[in-house]
Each structure stands twice: as C-alpha cells, then as structure tokens.
C-alpha cells in the first residue's frame, strides 16, 4: 500500500459518492416531510437511461442531464399523487414505482446499450496535469447541494415548515401550513434529485448505459438517509463511505486478489448493513414522527 493508492482511492470515493448524494439529500428532504420513497432506484434508472439516450441523440450532455432529472421529477409525480392525494401506502407505491422505473428505463435504454454518449466535461481540482480528482461539475455541485440542504432545513422558514409537516402534519396544518402542498413540493425535489443522480451516474461516472446499472444505489440512498439521521451534512459522510467501499472493491478486483469477485461485489452492501446495525440505536428519536404514515386531513376528531 502506498500513497498513490490511497489518493486514488479517495479520489474515486468522492466520484462514486456524488451520484449517491443526490438521491440521499433528496430523500432526506422527502422523509423530513414524512414520506418514505422506495422508488428511488426506479427514478435513478429513469434519469440514467433517458439522459444517456438524449445525450447520444442530442450530443449535449447538459441538456440531457437536466431532461433526465426532469423525467425523474415527472415520474415521482405518480408517487406524489398516489401518496398525498389518494392516501396510498407509501411502501407499496414506492415499490411499484421502483419496478415501473426498472422496466421503462430498460425499454428506453435498449437501443443505446454499448453506445457512446457525450459525457460531462471534467474539471481537475489539482491542476490540469493531475489525473486524480478530476470531476464533472455535478460532483462539486452534489457536495454544495448537501450543505445548502442543511441550511435550508435548519435555518430557513421553509425548512422549519417542512420538518413540522414530517413531525406532525395535523399540528403543521394548525400552524397554517398545507401539509399536502409541502409534500408535493418535496416529492418534486426527490424526483428531480434522484433523476439527477441517475443522470450523473450514467454521463459522469460510468459513461455507459446498461440495464439496472444503478445496482441498488436507490436503496443504498435510503439506508444512507437513516445513517445520516436525516441530516444532509452527515449524508456526505455516508455517501463517501459507500463510494469508498465501491472503489476499494474495484481496486481489489483490479489487483487480482484471490477473493471471488462476487464476494467483492457484495462488500459495499454488507458494509451498509453493518453500519446500519451499529448505527441503529438512537435512530428512533431522530426519525420524523409521521414518517410513513398516511395523513388523512384534520377533520377526524369529534369535539
């Protein structure tokens, strides 16, 4: 083990952290309003496949990335409508959305498997000659976004209102906030950021499209939300940790260490489980109180 190896590991960890950070920060905001969205994986895949396809067609990765994120937003409106307006179960709706995204993204992406798309341009952090720490703009933005999300949540009026809805929608309503509106807005953000994460993964990190390429990152993001205790700044730590695990696993495979590649593939996910296991204590007190519950409105108590 030498310094180069370590630097390239850090460099890779940050790269792999970014596409996780988008859905994680989005989901932190969503869960802070009381919504669990198990459909993140599907949203990421939709963002990835549409942006990849558009980049191939249009040749402009930026337009493709934002259209991909927009598709994520639109797809999550299905979830928002069912959960907020029709009081559907969040878990069932989320899972349905996940499979919907999986199928539709595979269909849309089919003609583009193995093709080359216009990738996002890279900007080196350490000067033009270093091969490490060269990231596309969206990597930098991801970390900035996490910090901004923290400020938004804990230092702004809207963040306060958003958290109030997640703790107790009935009381938030009594405070003059519309829980439905807050949740709809949050669902749009969740969809957009999940789509953006997928798009960045396809056009910034892997620069290819293959079916199911997000490989469970949507679910890892949900785990990271719990790990972060619904705090966007801690989500950065979680994302780097998972990104680091992925890179470490790739590095070990590249070195031809005598461990089954299937076992190594498993490593980041086992790490996630393990961290959640250690981290599980005390989570109960920080989780938004209305998380996962259906809010039926206020006219249910007799006087």
């Amino acid at each position: 083990m030498n310094g180069d190896w370590f630097l390239s590991w850090i460099s890779g960890a940050i790269l792999y952290a970014a596409p996780l950070l988008y859905p994680t920060v989005g989901e932190v905001l969503g869960q802070r309003t009381g919504m669990v969205n198990l459909g993140l994986e599907g949203l990421m895949l939709l963002g990835a496949s549409t942006s990849f396809a558009l980049s191939v067609r249009l040749g402009n990765p930026w337009v493709a990335v934002f259209l991909g994120a927009g598709v994520g937003l639109l797809a999550n409106l299905i979830y928002a409508f069912l959960v907020v307006k029709r009081n559907a179960s969040q878990l069932a709706t989320g899972l349905a959305l996940m499979f919907f995204g999986l199928g539709v993204s595979a269909l849309l992406g089919k003609p583009y498997v193995g093709q080359m798309a216009a990738a996002l341009p890279k900007y080196p952090l350490l000067g033009p000659r270093s091969l490490l720490f060269r990231y596309d703009l969206l990597v930098y933005v991801a970390f900035l976004l996490a910090a901004l999300a923290w400020v938004f949540l804990f230092r702004t009026r809207w963040g306060l209102q958003l958290r109030a809805v997640g703790e107790n929608p009935a009381h938030a309503y009594a405070a003059g906030i519309s829980p439905a509106r807050v949740r709809l807005a949050a669902a749009c953000v969740v969809g957009f950021l999940a789509g953006l994460g997928g798009a960045q993964l396809a056009l910034g990190v892997t620069q290819t499209w293959s079916e199911g390429m997000t490989a469970g990152r949507g679910f890892i993001a949900i785990a990271l939300v719990i790990f972060s205790r619904w705090n966007p700044l801690r989500a950065i730590v979680g994302a780097i940790l998972f990104g680091g695990a992925v890179v470490l696993q790739l590095q070990l495979q590249a070195r031809g260490i005598g461990i089954s590649p299937f076992f190594l593939d498993m490593f980041p996910y086992v790490l996630t489980l393990f961290v959640l296991l250690l981290w599980g204590r005390g989570v109960r007190h920080t989780a938004p109180a209305s998380l996962g519950r259906v809010y039926f409105g206020t006219e249910e108590r007799g006087g």
């Binding site: 938030a172 906030i177 938004p288």
Partner: peptide
C-alpha cells in the same frame, strides 16, 4: 399543537407570520 422534536424557538417560529 406543539411539535415535541422541535425546540421552543422552532415551535414559536412556525407560528410567526
């Protein structure tokens, strides 16, 4: 109609127009 997880200040702020 207070929200237990929030602080006194945050609960008050929620109601400030």
């Amino acid at each position: 109609t207070l929200i237990p997880a929030l602080t006194v200040a945050e609960n008050v702020a929620l109601f400030l127009s």
